[in-house]
Every structure is written in structure tokens, then in C-alpha cells.
Simulated assay, not measured.
Amino acid sequence: MSTLHAILFAIMQGISELFPVSSLGHGVVLPDLLHWGLNRQDPSFLAFMVTLHLGTALALLIYFHRDWLDLIGGFVRAGGRPVNPESRLVWLLIGGTIPAGLLGLLLEKKLRGLFGSTTLVLAVLIVNGIILIAGDMLRHNGRGRTLDELSFFGALKIGLVQALALIPGISRSGVTLIAGLHEGLSYAASARFAFLLATPIIGAAGVLEVPKLLQHGSQISIGLALGCGLLSGVFAYLSTWVLMRYFNKHEIQALRPFGWYCIGLGLLGLLLRLL
């Protein structure tokens, strides 16, 4: 991977990780369509992508640092019991993290094989777009609930849906947002929960994968990888800033533009592969 490609990859990752358009899908599709000639089967490729994810996790921690300080403080004051809103939300996040974490560990090797098929990822991107549009249309009418009203079972369901993002082409933020909406949350509350939920799972993936980058540093130097991780974090922070304001202002049809984008990119990619 050239330095220019690594930098462009980092920018793309920072934007697409939090926008509901699938960063993994874009990480497979765009380099292939642009003929970058990346070896996605090299062990360092996934490790490099996860290094970019670490930048995203850092950006989320910085953006929501006050939330995390309040959550940790409330959890400590409650002695770990869900007796205040902050401690209760910590337990909701733990419950939402468990399904994706377990499934990721169990299915990691099988899911790695999906990175090799651009055609499959393009098809899944179209499915992601349909999910966003259909989920937005079929959301519960009783919208506007806050996270204080989310049940533990509801958080567990959102976490289970989040596990779909292990498939390249399915957006983590997109499916968790849809799941939150169908638990009756507002767009803003669902987005906040989705972004808070993404932080531990992305961070944990980085802890597991970065050592592999150190071991298999064949495509990119460690210094460039870390620099790209920071660049990805900058764009992830800007993306979070934009999206939180967007979802605060839009309480209807907010996910449909992203859905149509995914469908359009998927169809265009499939068409180009046929020509």
C-alpha cells in the first residue's frame, strides 16, 4: 500500500465508520473499483484497518468524554448497581456489547473470507441500503423516548443487531440506529447509544489486532499506520459532530439518504464489474 493510498484509506475510514454506510464495505469496494491493487488477504491488511478503527474509538472517546466521565462516576457512586441513570446506562452498554463481542470471537475466521469477494460486498451494501430505508419507514410511531426508558432486554437486542456489522457491507452505526429506533428511541438518543456502544467494541478489536500489525508489517510501516490512525480519528470526530447535529434536527426519514447512497454505490459497482 502506497503512502497516498494509506492516507486516502484513513480519511475514508474516518468518515464511513460513523456514517451509516459501512466502513468495512467501503474498505473492500473502493480500493478495488479504483484499482489500488491491495492484497486484502495479507494479515496486515485487516490489522491496518483495525488501527484506523482505534483512531475512530479515540475520536469517540474525546467527543463523548463528558458522557463517559459521568457514566464512570455514576457507576462508582452506585457501587456497580443500576440505581442511578449513569450506572444503569453502563449496564445497558455492557449488555449491548456482549452479543457482538462473542459472535466476533466465534466467527472471526469465517468472516475474514468475505473480504476477498468484492461482488458479495457490493450486494451486501445494497442490502444495507434497503435495511436503512425499510427500517426508517417501519420505525415505531411512539418515537421520542430517552435512554432512561430503554430496557436491558432492548439494549441486548440492539447489541445483537450490531453483530450484523461483522459482515462487510453492513453498517454498525446504521443497524444499531435502526434497532434503537424500533425500541422507541428518538434519532438523537439512538445515535448517542450507537456511538457509545461502538467505542468498547472497536477498542477491543484494536487491542486484539494491533499486535498482528506489528508481526505482519508487510504492507505499511508502523509509523505510517499510527499516523493514519490519528488522521482517521480526526475525520471520525468531524463525522460525529456532523451526525449528532443532523439527527438532532431530523426526526423523520433521516436514514433514507444514506440508504439510497448505499444502494446506488452497490448497483454502480456491480455494473462496472460487468463492463
Rank of each mutant, 00 (worst) to 15 (best):
50 V>Q: 10
128 N>K: 06
4 L>H: 08
275 L>R: 13
51 T>E: 07
67 D>I: 05
69 L>F: 03
206 G>Y: 02
15 I>N: 13
224 L>F: 03
133 I>C: 06
105 L>V: 11
169 G>I: 02
22 S>Q: 00
230 L>G: 00
224 L>V: 11
63 Y>W: 07
136 D>F: 02
59 A>M: 09
104 G>F: 07
110 K>C: 01
98 I>K: 10
8 L>I: 15
97 T>E: 01
197 L>R: 06
67 D>A: 12
63 Y>P: 05
185 L>W: 11
179 A>M: 09
104 G>Q: 09
19 F>E: 08
74 G>K: 01
189 A>H: 15
151 S>E: 08
261 Y>H: 05
164 L>Q: 06
53 H>T: 11
126 I>M: 09
97 T>K: 08
272 L>A: 07
189 A>S: 14
260 W>R: 00
162 Q>G: 12
132 L>G: 10
153 F>W: 12
13 Q>M: 10
167 I>M: 14
64 F>H: 04
18 L>F: 15
32 D>I: 03
145 R>V: 07
158 I>C: 03
153 F>A: 10
255 L>H: 12
57 A>D: 11
252 I>N: 12
230 L>P: 01
89 L>M: 09
16 S>W: 09
147 L>C: 15
190 S>Y: 13
196 L>V: 08
41 Q>T: 14
221 S>I: 00
16 S>L: 11
78 A>C: 00
179 A>R: 11
100 A>R: 04
152 F>I: 06
83 V>A: 12
43 P>S: 08
158 I>W: 11
188 A>G: 13
251 E>P: 00
57 A>S: 15
8 L>Q: 06
215 Q>D: 06
144 G>R: 10
243 L>Q: 14
84 N>G: 13
207 V>C: 04
236 A>E: 14
98 I>S: 08
196 L>Y: 06
74 G>E: 00
84 N>T: 02
77 R>L: 03
10 A>F: 14
95 G>V: 01
107 L>H: 09
82 P>R: 09
242 V>E: 04
226 L>A: 12
124 V>C: 04
84 N>A: 02
255 L>W: 09
21 V>T: 00
108 E>V: 12
187 Y>K: 03
140 H>A: 12
37 G>H: 02
67 D>T: 10
209 E>Q: 05
102 L>N: 03
49 M>N: 14
89 L>A: 08
102 L>Q: 03
148 D>K: 13
270 L>D: 03
68 W>C: 03
188 A>Q: 15
263 I>H: 03
271 L>F: 13
174 G>K: 14
126 I>Q: 05
60 L>Q: 12
180 G>D: 15
214 L>S: 01
18 L>T: 12
218 S>F: 05
174 G>L: 14
242 V>N: 08
11 I>R: 07
42 D>N: 13
51 T>R: 01
106 L>R: 05
42 D>T: 02
178 I>L: 10
236 A>G: 11
157 K>C: 15
19 F>A: 15
268 L>E: 01
154 G>W: 03
128 N>L: 08
113 G>D: 06
88 R>V: 00
177 L>H: 13
239 S>C: 13
134 A>L: 13
219 Q>H: 03
157 K>I: 15
217 G>M: 03
65 H>E: 05
160 L>Q: 04
238 L>W: 14
76 V>S: 02
149 E>G: 11
58 L>F: 10
62 I>R: 00
106 L>D: 05
180 G>Y: 12
47 A>M: 07
37 G>D: 09
246 Y>W: 13
68 W>T: 04
22 S>P: 05
